[in-house]
Nucleic acid binder design. Structure first.
Lengths: 190, 190
DNA sequence: ATTATCTATAGATCTATAGATAATGC
DNA sequence: ATTATCTATAGATCTATAGATAATGC
């Protein structure tokens, strides 16, 4: 019944994967250690062999989720593509695999500094990527605009998810995406 | 010991005020009925005379919070002023009295439709207000830009709160605000 | 022998209810 | 008599720990 050292490592990874998904789907507070272990196919008592506490798991799982999210947008070629992917209905409706700030931002903001995982690096990396897309387009970068654009993507996704009215939700996604499409045809103001 | 009918009504309002603040400060899941009643100066058993359940309180308190937030920005005169207030350090650091979407958006998004209070009306009202500010400036409105601008404000505030690095947090607030200031001097693209 | 996992449970906390209390309002 | 509030508690749920189990790995 005892797994090999390698299987134990895989189990730990599966706990992280499961937590990263369940936390984003339901919120950190709403997901117990029990649910995470059940989702990973283990019993909840075994959890404390892998992690010191739920807080420790949270920090690691959040960083784990952000790493995966960064990789999934690494090959985006333009700001319009970035916006189309980020503001897709699929991203809105499947939160468990999406942007960590959009699902857990406000909850993470209440955690003490140092327990929020690599969130600052994550945001910095997203800003840098938008700057890289700017440079690829016309050779110049505008960090201020990169920050405002990233803010717009994040805010639109959260609003589209929070709003009760499906029509308004679709409008927020579509119009913000179109804003980036028309914006792309304007000269940069730098 | 029993209060007058009028005092009971005041008690109910104080429960709503307290819940609206505590929910925004700590998240809905993290605040028990006990804490709300204690904050309102009552014992927690008395809660169920005022509300049927915590879910009922949540719907009402969220709407209550959004009503108050709308009133507090009703007299804003320009988009720059709106951005300056919304992206102020004060708003970032005092969540209990601020924008409900920025503190509770992702948590509300997990509630079933119909239990999120007046969130759609709240977002619609914010969009309409930005359109009114556009009209007051040059007589035209651009709903698409209003949506993108509102998204940008919301996203920037959430990022500034979530990020671990105080310098990056300040930069996000300042640069997004400056983006609106410079943006205001450009011709509208409609 | 070591150790990853499981079973069982302690101790907190949270929502909700039941019955008692005591002052208001017909 | 009605009713807003309080006291006490039931029933769930959640984090964490203790001790048992059984297969791996020196």
């Amino acid at each position: 019944m005892r797994p090999t050292r390698e299987q134990a490592k895989e189990n730990r990874q599966r706990i992280l994967d499961t937590a990263a998904r369940l936390f984003r789907e339901n919120g950190i507070h709403a997901v117990g250690v029990d649910a995470v272990m059940k989702g990973a196919g283990l019993t909840h008592g075994g959890f404390y062999g892998h992690f010191k506490s739920k807080g420790d798991l949270t920090t690691e799982a959040v960083s784990h989720a952000m790493d995966a999210a960064l990789q999934s947008v690494a090959d985006v070629k333009s700001m319009e593509d970035f916006a189309a992917a980020y503001l897709s209905r699929e991203h809105r409706d499947i939160a468990g695999n999406g942007c960590t700030i959009a699902t857990l931002g406000p909850e993470l903001a209440r955690f003490p500094e140092g327990q929020r995982g690599t969130v600052s690096d994550y945001v910095s990396a997203q800003i840098a990527q938008i700057e890289a897309l700017q440079a690829a387009k016309d050779g110049t970068t505008d960090r201020r605009k990169a920050i405002a654009d990233l803010s717009s993507l994040l805010g639109a996704l959260i609003m589209a998810r929070t709003v009760d009215d499906p029509q308004l939700s679709d409008e927020i996604l579509t119009e913000t995406r179109l804003y980036f499409a028309t914006d792309a045809n304007k000269p940069t103001n730098s």
